[in-house]
Structures are given as C-alpha cells and as structure tokens.
Design a protein around this nucleic acid. Structure first.
Lengths: 117, 117
DNA sequence: CAACTGTACTATCAGTGATGGTACAGTTAG
DNA sequence: CTAACTGTACCATCACTGATAGTACAGTTG
C-alpha cells in the first residue's frame, strides 16, 4: 500500500502524505476506514514512529483524515476534498504550461501530447 | 534581471539557476553574452559569492553557459537546449496530468483549462 | 603591475528531516 | 480492573544541506 522511495528527494513524511492523499481520492480507501496505527506502519516501513506521526498530523491538517485519541486515524468523509485537490493539480499544471509556452512551445503541440496519453 | 524570493521554499542558488535558464531560453540573453561576475552579482543580490558560484557551476553542468577562467561566464550557443528543456517540461506536465486523471478529472475538462490560457 | 575574472578550500552556522527513547492520556478486549 | 493497544508530547541527537565568511591562488586584461 505504502512504499518509500529513497531515491526520491522529497522527505519520507511527505511521500507518505502524498500516497495517502491519492489513495483516498481514488477511492481505494473508504470513508471512516481505519489507517494503520502510527507504531504499526512505522514497524512495517522500518522507519521511526515520529515520522509517521508527522505525516498523519499533516493529513489531518489538510482534512484527509481525522484522529480519535486512543482509537486511531480514520479516512475523512469530506466530499469537497476531490474538488480542492483537482484545483491544486490544475494550478500546478497551468503554471508549468505557462512556462513552456514562454519558451516557444505551441499550445496545439502540448495538447497533442496530452491527448496521446 | 534576477530576483530572490525569500518566501520561496527552494534554495537561492536553485532560483538563480531557474531564472537564468528561462532568460536564456526565451532569448533575453544572447549567445556568448557575458553574465555578471560571481562577486558582482553577489554584491547586487546581497548574498554570498559562493552561492552564485554554485548556481553558475550548475548552469555550466547543464550546458546553459560556459566558463573561461579569468574572463567570466558566458551564455552557451547550444541550440539543442530548447528542445531538451521542452522535454523536461512535457515530462513534468504529463506526470501531473496522469495523476489528476487518476482522481477522476476528464481529459477534455483539462484541455479546456489549457485552451483558456 | 593593478584590478579584474574564476576556483578551491576550510570553518562555521542554521534549519530540517529523521532517529531513539521516555512518558502520559484515552480506548478497548479480556 | 488490567493489559495491550491507540495517539501525543516531549527531548536529545545525528546527518545533511544551504548559506555565510574568509583566505588563497591562478588566469586575463588594461
């Protein structure tokens, strides 16, 4: 479910955050489904519990999960998440598109590349 | 010409590298045009000469400029740079597009956003 | 020669990501 | 109630990176 890529320049906790965000948005995890406990996931990935804690705290801050002390972390049922996430992506994509247009690539050429996916 | 954004999370030397890459590719700097000296630019930006040196070394490594000891740094005349840079952008954009498609955005909706630029 | 260029060091500092460990509070199954 | 699980809050430490500061040396040019 979760894999750490040590060749990735991004910090571990950030990779975990991204991975769960995607899993939740793709519907791979249901609302109110429980996430692995901080200690369990840390064991499984052979990393420090504090690192998992940091990732979960960030996921909660962004509204993807909610925490119940003593019980665990659970997937949030917030339906607005997908739209917000889409907008994040769109902004990133458009920013890159603006740059590549500036150095002379044509919009049609770009769209052809996307169509080819 | 060059501005440092201290709110940007990226390191200073990286911002300088990106800025020059864009300036060169947009044609704002001509081939063989001289860049500010390491010490001058450092003074101008109120940062350390070593930081400029690191940026210039990276620009040379990527083929955007060439260095002549004792004389200075100059814009490279490599014509393949633009194509390579375009490919870099395309790869980044396609990677993001793949992700946003995974969470349920439609290709047509995406293309509409790009067309609207 | 003087005043520029780049370059190569070394030492130091600050911030961040990650680890290891301890401790405490809430929950739940037995 | 107790044991075993949950999250959470610390603290100290380490490694790495980005940036600073300073010195020194080599090449170029007016």
């Amino acid at each position: 479910m979760i894999l750490i890529d040590y060749k990735d320049t991004r910090p571990i906790y950030e990779q975990i955050v991204e991975r769960y965000k995607t899993l939740i948005l793709k519907g791979a995890l249901q609302s109110d489904e429980q996430l692995p406990s901080v200690r369990n996931l840390a064991m499984e990935l052979s990393i420090n519990p504090n690192t998992i804690q940091k990732a979960y705290a960030e996921l909660e801050r962004q509204g993807f999960i909610y925490t119940v002390k003593g019980r665990g972390n659970f997937v949030s049922g917030d339906s607005g998440l997908i739209d917000r996430r889409k907008n994040e992506y769109i902004e990133q994509i458009l920013a890159l598109v603006r740059e590549v247009l500036e150095i002379g690539m044509s919009k049609t050429e770009l769209i052809r590349e996307i169509e080819a996916l």
